[in-house]
């Protein structure tokens, strides 16, 4: 019986995290747009606008380009499914998520990579020049962010002696010195750069661009419409919320629920929402003051993140 109860609690945690990240991700987009607008002296759309957009999209007709195959249809599903899977088992609301022992950071990175790969393949499947352009650019940036991200995973894992994600979060709660260690600070700086690149924010990609020739991510999803576009939007915003959630829990691990009780989950959710919102507002404010970088300047930024993370490893080795 107790096994059944534990299973139920685990499922509850998964559902709470998925709903929080899927819905909250859209609101996060709204908050970030609102912040930008206000900083630029505009009123801007309401915070719930992305949510309304998705609701509208869901009831629209699905259109498939003539040349496209099932790969095109599978793209958004895989993006959303990988985000849902990682969200369900990541230490977001609680540091004891379902399947906590097997939530490996390295595996998380590669599961999310599956989403990026399937979206790039879907873009090439449309047989349009813009699809190919977006896929080529996104894959190039991905080819350079993935090494930086793996270096971040390494830099976080070496002092903790494990690459298990919940263990990394718990470590910070148990021993606050870990959070302030130079290794982790350097790694988290690199992680932030990676998140910005991975989720297509400025200065890597402009999520609000209307000029097709400068698009990266938006060019890949130009052919989607209706519920498919809704899935892409939800999936991508969930990725942003998820990565930011992991980031804030590694950087500021306090407030993460230690267990799976209802009260704990409520407090944990509130704290998570607050932390992610602050991070989102900070990123949006930063975006106001930056312009998009040239595509061929990006390798320098990402190589910088890579080196930062490796410096983090080095500092851990020196100080141990």
């Amino acid at each position: 019986m107790s096994a059944l109860v534990r299973l139920g609690a685990a499922a509850c945690v998964a559902v709470v995290q998925v709903l929080l990240v899927a819905g909250g991700g859209l609101l996060l987009l709204g908050v970030m747009r609102k912040t930008r607008s206000r900083c630029e002296g505009r009123v801007g759309p309401p915070v719930r606008q992305p949510l309304l957009d998705v609701v509208k999209l869901v009831s629209k007709q699905r259109i498939r380009p003539a040349a496209a195959s099932p790969v095109f249809v599978a793209g958004p599903v895989v993006v959303a499914a990988t985000a849902v899977l990682v969200t369900a088992v990541a230490p977001l609301v609680t540091s004891d998520p379902p399947l906590a022992r097997s939530t490996d950071f390295f595996a998380v990175v590669l599961v999310l990579l599956l989403g990026s790969v399937s979206l790039a393949l879907a873009a090439l499947d449309t047989a349009t020049p813009f699809g190919g352009m977006g896929a080529s650019r996104a894959t190039t940036i991905g080819a350079l962010t993935e090494p930086a991200l793996l270096a971040v995973v390494l830099a976080l894992s070496v002092p903790a002696r494990t690459s298990n994600l919940p263990a990394l979060v718990r470590e910070g709660i148990v021993d606050p010195r870990v959070v302030a260690s130079p290794g982790r600070i350097l790694a988290l700086c690199a992680f932030l750069v990676v998140i910005v690149a991975e989720t297509g924010r400025l200065p890597v990609d402009n999520p609000q661009t209307h000029l097709e020739l400068t698009m990266i991510h938006e060019a890949m999803v130009l052919e989607y419409s209706g519920p498919d576009l809704a899935l892409v939007t939800v999936g991508e915003s969930a990725r942003l919320a998820l990565l930011l959630g992991i980031f804030v829990n590694l950087a500021v691990p306090w407030g993460v629920a230690p267990g799976r009780g209802a009260a704990e989950l409520a407090v944990g959710s509130a704290v998570l929402v607050a932390k992610v919102a602050i991070a989102g507002i900070a990123i949006a404010t930063f975006e106001v003051f930056t312009a998009k970088l040239r595509l061929f300047r990006l390798p320098e930024v990402l190589a910088g993140a890579f080196v930062l993370a490796l410096l983090g490893v080095a500092s851990t080795l020196v100080t141990r």
Binding site: S59, P65, T126, T128, E223, P227
Partner: peptide, 19 residues
């Protein structure tokens, strides 16, 4: 995807929009 808003019109195959 299929349950929410299931009263939408059936899927259509069309030429790619491509801007």
């Amino acid at each position: 995807r299929d349950r929410i808003g299931s009263r939408r019109p059936p899927r259509r195959v069309a030429a790619a929009w491509s801007c």
